[in-house]
Every structure is written in structure tokens, then in C-alpha cells.
Amino acid sequence: MFFHMVLERNMQLHPRHFGRDLRDKLVAKLMKDVEGTCSGHHGFIVAITGIESVGKGRIRDGTGFVVFPVKYQCVVFRPFKGEILEAVVTMVNKMGFFAEAGPVQIFVSNHLIPDDMEFQPGDIPNYTTSDGSVKIQKESEVRLKIIGTRVDATEIFCIGTIKDDFLGVISDPGANS
């Protein structure tokens, strides 16, 4: 799920940037430093949307660098266990399939794909029901439920399932062609 929240960060600024456009420099550096990063706790920081406040700077002993506490508003993406969301299938193999929901990767193991869907190897590997009516292949859109997340310092990885009511394929790229 996407959230809009206020986060805080201590920004170090080199003295050569002190001047009229100190604030602009600070904001530009903040964007460069945090946009696109991921922390296990807050999730992926997608975009900064505004600056809430810039606190008083403090000179660091011995270096001349100044540290400013900056509060900023941003859009973050954080997946949760138990959350249901839509995702795009990126890779299918006999172990299961990978899907992407925004910046996050989700793996759905073949144990968590309904039992009536069989893996079909070939040019376009896919999972298909015995009557051929439902097919999961690359670029399919699926609705899945996150059942586990692995969070480390710079990445979030999820395990999902489509073996539940109202989960599974929502659109099939092969259907229109």
C-alpha cells in the first residue's frame, strides 16, 4: 500500500553551499539521497512531495559541516503481511512465478497456486487450468495476497498466494490477441 507520511532526516551540508540558496541545495540533496531508497521499516521512498520544516543547523566538531534536521513529506510504498493487491507477472518457471507490484517483488510458489493449474513449459512458460480457461504467463495481471515479507536493510521481498477466494488472474495478455 502507498502512504503519505512525514519523515525526518539529518542532512549534512558542506559549507560551500552556505548562501542565499542554502535551502534549495538542502532540498536537492535530500531528494538525491532518499528518493528511491528502501528501509525495512518505512518501505520504499517513492517521491518527496514537500518540506515540512528545516530545523536549526548545528556545526559538527572539527569538520565545518553543518547538520540540519529536515522534516519532509513523502510517498512511501510498504507491503504488509495479509494485504491483498494486484501485481504484474514478470517471470514464470516450474517453481512458481514472480510478480511485481510497483517497486516490490513477490514470489508465488507452485504450492500456493491452485491445484488445478499445471505448469506448461515452452516458449512462453505458463500455468494453465486443465480446461485451458485460465492462464498465468508473463505480463498477466493477478490479484494476490501477501503471506510473508522478508525485510533487510535495503530491500523488501514478499511471498504471496493466489490460493484463496477471489484471488488469481484478473487479465490475461493472451486473451485479446
Partner: peptide
């Protein structure tokens, strides 16, 4: 743009 931004 960061990759995260693009993908999102």
C-alpha cells in the same frame, strides 16, 4: 528518476 519512482 529512480528505478523505484519509475516502477511505481
Amino acid at each position: 528518476m529512480s528505478q523505484v519512482f519509475e516502477k511505481s
